[in-house]
Design a protein around this nucleic acid. Structure first.
Lengths: 202, 202
DNA sequence: AAATTATGTTGACAATGTTAACATAACAAG
DNA sequence: CTTGTTATGTTAACATTGTCAACATAATTT
């Protein structure tokens, strides 16, 4: 774990800070994180952080990006096997929701969080990251249209609707209606069927 | 505005604190609020708050409830006119999304926020409040089933799916895909059509 | 009128993000 | 190898914030 004396004084502090911060956020939520604890957890003083990040928010921004990479990594496998295209879409959504349930605090950081405003101000990579995951989805929608599975329509908008649905389910599962988690599979299937039967060509 | 010498020393401080706090959160977001500013904005010292709330979180919990009342008030009219039932559902969703767009910070407080955990611990009124708004929706779904508009299914689950979709659209509009706001009407109609055509009896 | 309770104020404290002044390791140049 | 420069890390201090205790005053009860 502790790759000291690799490159500089302490090893690769910056990456270690990001990964430990991600872990801490995953466990306790963004708002609970403190630079002092992060520093001591990683073996340095609190102020060392400022050699790698201009502020706490700057750090969190990096965790934000790392979180998206983690999400992408969790979803990618479901896209790469060449099953029936709707099955692929189904599995993708399922992995998405699984990620949210397994990492609710990270998921909250990525979507629907109070940090989005500040992010919009200073971070332009963000949009690329979001767009990245989103464009997987758009690509699948385009394929679905090409294979005459989906109605002909603006793929961006169809993808938006799909994403909104999946995000809505994920978000409500982790934040409000946790008692529904027991029927998760059933609920998800129902959401997906509703969605796709609204988009399918008949 | 300042109803002094009504009941006690200062008037009805508690309610005034809640309403000003709501206003402040609406303008700047939950995480920006400070008790000192709230105190001075309302004309008292910071510590007076502790005569009415046990902690900052306790205050925010009250704002949370007030926020739900505000949301209910914004949605109720769309439910009370006796149009075609699907039109009513459509309008309800539209008002819901309008509320989110007009009061994004309050909306974030109500749904998908980091406070939900702490709320779950100490506040049991919350569920009632959420259930309240949610049960409007369930009632409409039940009606839709009775009138043979919707497929026969568990109304709670159908309502959950509808709410998830609407919430997903609202949430993504205010947090991520703000560039879609221009096509809002179109996007919303598309979401709703997708939803209902997935639920309608054919 | 006196006592008790409800409400508000001031001062202090610990925790936190941030910065400045200082220290040291890595590296380049001579 | 020595020296200077840069990259990195440490400690001390500061302002802000939530919270609490001690004190003060108004309202209510007895």
């Amino acid at each position: 774990m502790n790759k000291k004396s690799d490159t500089y004084h302490h090893g690769n502090l910056k990456e270690e800070l990001i990964s430990i911060a991600l872990e801490m956020i995953e466990n306790e939520g963004v708002e609970k994180i403190t630079l002092r604890e992060l520093g001591s957890r990683v073996g340095t003083s609190r102020s060392a952080i400022y050699r790698h990040f201009s502020s706490k928010n700057d750090l969190i921004q990096s965790v934000f990006i790392a979180g998206f990479e983690k999400l992408d990594k969790a979803i990618l496998p479901s896209l790469q096997n060449d099953e029936y295209i709707l099955t692929r879409l189904f599995n993708m959504g399922k992995e998405y929701i699984n990620f949210a349930i397994k990492n609710p605090n990270i998921y909250r950081l990525l979507f629907g969080n109070n940090f989005s405003n500040e992010r919009e101000e200073s971070c332009d990579i963000e949009d690329k990251e979001i767009a990245c995951g989103f464009h997987y989805l758009v690509a699948v929608v385009v394929q679905a249209q090409e294979k005459k599975l989906f109605k002909k329509d603006d793929p961006m908008k169809q993808a938006f609707v799909i994403h909104a649905m999946i995000h809505g389910v994920a978000s409500m599962l982790i934040d409000n209606h946790s008692h529904i988690k027991e029927n998760l599979d059933e609920i998800y299937k129902m959401s997906f069927d509703t969605l796709s039967s609204g988009m399918l060509l008949k």
